[in-house]
Structures are given as structure tokens and as C-alpha cells.
Amino acid sequence: MSMSSADVLQFVASGLQNGAIYALMALGFTLVFASTGIINFAQGEFFMLGGMLAAAGMAAGVPLGVSVLAAVAATTLVGCLVERLALRPARSAGGLALVIITIGCSMLIKSGARHLFGPDERALPAFTAGEPLSVGGALIEPQAVWVLVLALAAAVGLTVLYRWTKMGLAMRACSISHDAARIVGVDTARVVMLSFGLAGALGALAGAVVAPITQTAYDVGARMGLKGFAAALLGGLGDPVGAIVGGFVLGLLESGAVAVVSGTYKDAVALVVLLVVLVLRPQGILGRHLGEKL
């Protein structure tokens, strides 16, 4: 079987589309890691909530745009609540206990969604109707453009927030040292809650924007959580640019694995590359040696 250049471009397009979603997820992981030093295993459930709440809103007769925005807002609130109600009271218990608490939260959110929405998959209409666009022979659905544009917008917005706002400065300060940040007057508790809220918003945005392409269900979170976590590790935990790079690299890797090996081994190929990268560069592709900062 011979591949034309249009086919190769199609693989790239598919890799970029999935990569954009992984990047949003990885950003969620990275934000929480930067401000708390823990991995939030409820991140995948934020993704699920974005899609499921938007679909539920649509089913209740709310217009699509409002449903999606409301889903993102509601999940942001869920992110804040996870921090405020589950993690903050146990703050002194140490990293591993907090990670386990996030696993508990993810189970709670998933079971809740199953009871609320039932076990069936839900469909969401595309944000804009229309025929696929042809780019160099590769056909790209309008929704895939939405995925890329929103992921990019979120990445730019986050970078602006992180680099050039006072809140961003506080977040960066927290990622270096909580104690030092507190001494110079940073409200660290607020920063941590904000990072969970943003992680919720990013996950929900990813879940809602991809649902028209993939459908959604109460149980899609765990899988996407692992992908996002892998992307964050690949790019370098704690580094927003690394998260985006890691997401796209993982998406392209998976697409390439299907092209040259087989769909059955897609996940395996991506994980093997992840392991190799982590052995050669434990800090991830763009991650700095953590020691440098201290």
C-alpha cells in the first residue's frame, strides 16, 4: 500500500488534533503540580465533566454555546471545591496522601456522573456545521479547527497569565517555594485553589470541544487522564510550554504508530517512547533540572 502526501498530512492532522487535547490535559496537570507538587488524578474527570455537562445542558434545551461555557464554569467550580473541601483540610498530611485523595475525588466524580447521567455515551453537535476543509489534500473537520484554536488560545492565555500578571507571578513564586512566597505576602492558599480551578477549566474545555468528534460518556476520564499525565511527563512536569510540546509530541507519536505499526499497539508505542525519553531525560523534553531553581 502506498501512502500519498495527502495521507501523510492526514496522519499529521489527526496527531495534531489529539495532541491539542492532550496538551490541554497536560497543562491542567502541570498547573497543579507547579503550585502544589502533587499530581491531580481527578484531572481526567474534569475532562469527562466538560463533555457530559455540555451534553446534559444541550439535552435540557440550553443552546450549545451556553452549555459549553456553563460546563467549563461548573467544572472550574468543581476544581476549586476539590481543593477547598478535600485537599486543603489534609494539607499537612504530605504529598502521597494528597495524591490518594485526588484518586478518591476522581472515583467520587465518576460515580456521581454515572448515577446522574447514566452509563450510555452522549453525542454533542459540532460547534459549527460544515464540510471538512481540505489542507494540502488532508481533510480537516471544522470541529478539529475549533480544537486547535481553543487549545492555542488557552495556551496563550495561560502564558500571559503566568508571565505577565501579578497572579501569575504569585503562582510562579509558589512553584519555587511555598514558604518563601508566603513570607513575601503571597496568599498561597488562594494560588493553589486558583490552579485547581484553572485545571478544571482546561480539562472541561478539552472534554467539551472534543465531544462532538469522539462522543463522551461517564467513563472517558481515566483514559484521557493517563494520556494527559503522560504528555505532561514527556514535556516536563511543571513547565507550561513543556506540557503543550508534550501533548503534541504524544498525539503525533500515536498517529505515527498507527501509520507504521498497527492500531492495536498505538498506546504501547507511545508509552515505550515515553519510557525511553524519561530514562534519557528524566526531567522531560523541556523540563529543567529541578535542582537548578533551588
Binding site: 500500500m1 500519498s4 488534533q17 472534543v210 484521557m224 498507527v258 492500531g263 492495536t264 498505538k266
Partner: peptide, 22 residues
């Protein structure tokens, strides 16, 4: 053409691109 996917996969476009080429 003979393609596979795993239960729970959320994207088939790579497999379908190979099928289209055949």
C-alpha cells in the same frame, strides 16, 4: 486493508487514512 483499534479508542482517523489509501 486490515486495521485494528482498541476498545475505548476515541480517534480512528489514522486507521481510516490507511484504509482510504488502499
Amino acid at each position: 486493508a486490515d486495521e485494528t483499534f482498541n476498545p475505548g479508542d476515541t480517534d480512528m482517523s489514522s486507521q481510516l487514512t490507511k484504509i482510504r489509501a488502499a
